[in-house]
Computed example of a mutant assay.
Amino acid sequence: VGRAPEGFSRTDSIAGIMGMTFIKAMECSRAMDEAMLCRGFAGAYPAPARAGFGWRDAVYAAGVALLAVLCAVL
């Protein structure tokens, strides 16, 4: 709002903010990686034993479909 002082560059300001955001994100990711290693993270997520479509999935899908129909009618 208002006039910018002489020599002020909005591009330089945005570049500085984005640079600091990048540096902060790198620091946070490094700290997160170190914390995960300290807690025993092996670097891979175990896959679930069963990946098929079961009766619980069918009940859930039927419930979602019922709610969608009720929302469309009401």
Rank of each mutant, 00 (worst) to 15 (best):
A72D: 04
A47P: 02
D57S: 15
W55F: 09
G19N: 13
A25R: 02
P46G: 02
A72E: 11
A68G: 15
M26I: 06
G63V: 05
L37E: 14
A62D: 05
W55L: 08
M18G: 02
G52I: 02
G43A: 03
L74S: 11
S9D: 04
P5F: 00
P48R: 10
D57Q: 10
D12K: 14
R50P: 00
C38G: 08
M32N: 10
A15R: 12
A42L: 14
P5G: 01
I14S: 04
S13P: 01
S29K: 03
M32L: 15
R30S: 03
F41P: 00
C28M: 14
W55Q: 08
S29H: 05
V1R: 11
A4T: 13
A25G: 06
C38N: 07
L66N: 09
A72R: 15
A58C: 12
V73H: 03
E6P: 02
V64F: 03
M36D: 07
E34A: 09
V59Q: 05
A58R: 09
W55H: 09
C38P: 00
P46F: 01
A44H: 09
K24A: 15
A31G: 01
A49Y: 05
A58G: 07
F22M: 15
A15C: 13
E27F: 07
F53N: 06
F53W: 11
L74E: 13
A65P: 01
A44D: 07
A68K: 08
A35I: 09
L37V: 15
A62F: 12
G19C: 04
A47R: 13
A31L: 06
G54C: 09
G2T: 01
C38M: 07
A61V: 13
M36S: 10
M26R: 03
